[in-house]
Structure formats: C-alpha cells, structure tokens
Amino acid sequence: MTIYNFDEIIDRKRTDSIKWSKKHLKEKFNEENSIPMWIADMDFKAAQPIIDALISRAEHGIYGYGHKSEEFLESAVNWQKKRNGWDIEKEWILFTPGIIPALNFIVKTFCNKGDKVIIQSPVYYPFLNIITSNECHIANNPLIYDKGEYTINFAELERIAKDSRTKLMFLCSPHNPVGRVWTEAELKQLGEICIKNNVLIVSDEIHSDLIFHPNHHTPFGKISEEFRMNSIVCTSPSKTFNLAGLQVSNIIIPNERIRNELNHKLTTIDIDPGSFASVAQIAAYNEGEEWLEQLLTYLAENLDFIDRFVKERMPKVKLIKPEATYLAWLDFSNLGLSDLELQQLMQKKAKVALDDGFIFGAGGELFQRINFACPRSLLQQALESIEKSLNGIA
C-alpha cells in the first residue's frame, strides 16, 4: 500500500497554473501575492499510477492522434459499476474535452434561439454563461436557503418546467457551490416534473466521486429506465484525480436518439481523447482508488478543521458544511457588508483569493467559496488571514 502525503507543499507558481499565476491573481483579485483558494483544482500530486502511466507514455516519444480505445471506455464502465453500482454500456459514452464544452454542445443541439434552460442558483457560474452565449434564456429555480440548509423549490420548478420554451435542465449533482448531495427521493421528484413537461435532464456529476460519509451519490440515470432515457449524465476523472489540465470527460447517454443527435454535432469538430488524457483516465479508474480513499479522508479532516476554526474564531461567519466536493460555502451576511465591501476585504486586507458568491447567481450574495483541497498548513494560513481581516468587524 502506498501512503500519500497530502501535507506536502508543492510549488506550482512556474507550472502555467491558472490558479497560482501571479499575473492572473493580479488581474482577477488585484493582488499577485494572494493565497489562491478559488478555482477547483487541487494542490496535491496525482496518484502514483497516473504519474507512472504518463511518464511511460511520454517516454514512448510519439504523440500522434488518440482515440476512444476499448480500454478507455471499459475503464469508465467499470468505475461506474464499482463506485456507484450503475451498469452502463460502452456504446453510451461520448467523449468531450471537458464538461463545459459538452454543455455548450448540448445547448446547441437541443435548443433553439430563445429557448429556456433551468438552473438552480446559486450554481456553478459557467452554466449561466453557456446558456446566454448560445442565445437562450435562464429559467432560474433558486434553491431554498433556510437555517443553513439548502433544498429544492419543487413548486417553482414545476411552474417554470411547464413553459413550452423550457427544453433542458442543468442539474448540478452534487451541487456546486452549496455542496448538497441530492437524495434519491429528491431526484425522483425532480425527474418526474421534467419528464411530465418534456424537459431533458443534463446532470453534471463531475464531483460525484468526492462524497463525504455517510452521504451517497445516486447517478441520475440509474434511478429508473424512464429517467435513463430522459437524461445526459456528464462525468469526468478530472475533479476526482486532479486531471483538469488533461481535458477528458465521459458523457453518458443511454437514449440512442439523443446520443446520435449530440454525436452528430460533436463530429463537426472531430474530437477524441489525446494520448495523455487516455492513459491518465485508464490509470486513474483502474488503479487510483487507493489514492482517492486517502484523499477523501484528508479532505474530511480539512473540512472539520474549517468547521472548528470558523466556529471558534470567526463566529459571525457561517460554514455551510458540504456533503460533497472540496469547495466550502461561507456565509458572511452577518457582517453588515455589501458584496463589494466583502470582496475588497478578501482581496485587499485578507489577500486570499476566493470566488465571490454573487458570481454564482441569485442567492450567492455575501457568500465566498473556498477550495480546501490543499495542504492543511496552507488552509490554516488562509483562514488566519481571513480572521485577521475581520478584526473590528466580526
């Protein structure tokens, strides 16, 4: 058994990392020496089998066109079976270089100009840009935030789903940024509303391997045959294994008609996994589970560290403790600040680069999202900087 050291500090400043780039931090956060706790990638080395596979592929010396090999597809099939108990077929899988490109092509395929796409704000902000940039309209079904917990407003969902112009629903499962793992009962109620109103579910399940005990992820397409035939399930090893720079995702579509329609659109740009993306996914799904289990333990400990720190040293700040993901949602609404004042406090005084809550849409105001997939010493440094910035306020 390999024991991984997640406490190791690894210098990423000269690796073209968007997260750590001084130029990018200066442009986005007005402070090039900010502690970067924003974009969702991890400050941990990948699992050793992935590193070994990439080194071996690099040493081969020829980097020609790749393709969806049987081994590549089988790795995704076996992973879903092993982690989620979901039996999928290789033929159901389409490749895209990331889920954001997939969502763009899905909107282009299944929507016309002026159609509507349901989201549940506050939500992963590229959802909003994808919809509007494709000349469609956002049909917002804001989550209900009550006593520190988030739930779905099903009555409002049903109302907006009835609109004949509503064609798709972007479901974030688990939800980013609020960290909810939707229960099977919640997914059933949501799915039944969409089926009744001919709304196609697009379930972004990129964080579905990052679930904290005792929560359990339910793939949307696993629930029933009816749901399977009315869904596109978007998966990827990128968040799970810190492979975002390799651009690989698996779009699972059991419905042959829907799959063929999307594949027809995808063939216009002729994309297949590159050689490095392919070997990384195969190594991750076939040999990375040991690393993932150790990662989840470390992340859970980091989350407990945040929880204790906030309660003991920043009592006016509230942590919405996530059931999944390595992204924590912090509520600063009790400080009496505006969004701009809170942003300036984080950027200029704390010098910690967090994602502003308002960019996630309605309901995100006065929140900040913090990425805690980093060595604990760095997390402590960031939290202490935030605490110091609150002196005289909280």
Rank of each mutant, 00 (worst) to 15 (best):
P101R: 09
I9C: 09
D304F: 06
L171W: 12
E158P: 00
F358M: 14
K265H: 10
E365L: 08
F305A: 05
P97Y: 01
L335F: 02
A102V: 02
A185D: 15
S17W: 10
N153G: 02
A102Y: 02
K113I: 08
E91G: 14
I138L: 09
N5T: 05
P273W: 10
W38I: 06
H24E: 14
G274A: 04
E365A: 11
G148K: 04
R257K: 11
R257W: 04
H216V: 14
K28P: 12
E192D: 15
K81R: 12
P174N: 13
Q344N: 15
L299D: 04
F367Q: 07
C111N: 05
N129T: 04
W92G: 09
L143T: 03
D272V: 11
A185F: 00
E341M: 10
A350V: 02
A283P: 09
C234R: 05
R165P: 00
S385N: 15
I195M: 14
D356H: 13
P126R: 10
V77L: 03
A58Y: 12
Y150Q: 03
V199I: 11
T297C: 04
E287D: 15
R228K: 13
H216Q: 14
I106M: 08
E226P: 01
C374M: 15
I99H: 13
A284P: 09
T96H: 12
G85M: 01
N286C: 13
V310W: 07
C234Q: 10
Y326A: 10
G179K: 04
A382V: 07
